[in-house]
């Protein structure tokens, strides 16, 4: 097990694996996402109460899922950075923070547009929405802090500490709708319980969630590869790999 762990820490090993998996992640992600969205937009029945505006759920829920999952994975990587000083963990955090920022923004934006016809307002300062806004600022803070510190090692540690400090926000986002009175309704899409929607609405949602996860995997791979290239360009294996790829 430890051997696998050390292999995982090797940028060279990761580079090879990522190159092999990326076409599958991209193709699978695009296919599943397209299937889920087209099904959800055109074929799923409308909701008895909200009519067609509920179709925003097929992008709102996957974006919100990813926004939180990405932060959790960043927090795990931050622990690895702080405890084991593994370079690849830090590469991961830096590569995916902008992706997390984008999905958080999308969750907030689609939520605001959905809120107008259903709730009657774009924005309300309830616990769920506010916690999500804090997540957006956390992602922004992580990116800014990383840019602000020139030294690679101290930047890695500072960013890891900030990510860990922010991780308390994740259970707040998840349970805000159960702990406090909020305008936002409780979760519809849960992996552990029976869904609160019929199959013909739940399946397209599942497809788009899975598709977006695969696309995130692809994004993480390509962005990590870029970051590794930047950092390891003085090493021999990168030099050989780049010069071999040119021919």
């Amino acid at each position: 097990m430890w051997q696998f762990f050390h292999k995982l820490g090797s940028p060279k090993w990761f580079f090879g694996i990522a190159t092999r998996f990326m076409p599958w992640l991209l193709a699978g992600g695009l296919l599943l996402l397209a299937a889920g969205l087209i099904w959800g937009l055109a074929f799923a029945p409308k909701d008895y109460l909200q009519g067609n505006s509920y179709r925003i759920i097929f992008i709102h829920v996957p974006s919100a899922f990813l926004a939180q999952s990405i932060y959790i994975s960043m927090a795990v990587a931050a622990v690895v950075t702080l405890v084991w000083r593994m370079k690849l963990a830090d590469v991961f955090v830096k590569a995916i923070a902008p992706v997390g920022l984008l999905f958080t923004f999308l969750a907030l934006f689609t939520g605001a547009i959905w809120g107008k016809p259903t709730w009657g307002t774009w924005w309300v300062w309830d616990a769920r929405l506010t916690a999500m806004l804090i997540l957006l600022f956390l992602y922004g803070g992580v990116i800014a802090l990383d840019r602000a510190i020139n030294d690679e090692k101290s930047a890695a540690r500072a960013v890891a500490v900030l990510v860990l400090v922010g991780v308390v926000n994740i259970p707040i986002i998840k349970y805000s709708v159960d702990w406090w009175n909020t305008l936002h309704q409780p979760a519809t899409f849960k992996l552990t319980e029976k869904p609160t929607m019929p199959m013909e609405m739940w399946l397209p949602l599942l497809l788009s969630v899975l598709g977006l996860y695969l696309l995130f995997g692809w994004l993480a791979c390509i962005r990590m590869k870029t970051e590794i290239l930047v950092r390891e360009q003085r090493t021999r294996w990168v030099r050989e790999l780049v010069l071999a790829g040119r021919k």
């Binding site: 937009l41 067609n52 925003i56 984008l102 689609t110 016809p117 692809w218 994004l219």
Partner: peptide, 24 residues
């Protein structure tokens, strides 16, 4: 038209697709 909800739904999907494709 989506029974009047068209602008909301399509705006969401457009922004989602444009930003995701843009990042990729």
């Amino acid at each position: 038209a989506m029974e009047g909800h068209g602008p909301y739904v399509w705006a969401c999907y457009a922004v989602f697709v444009v930003l995701l494709a843009g990042l990729m």
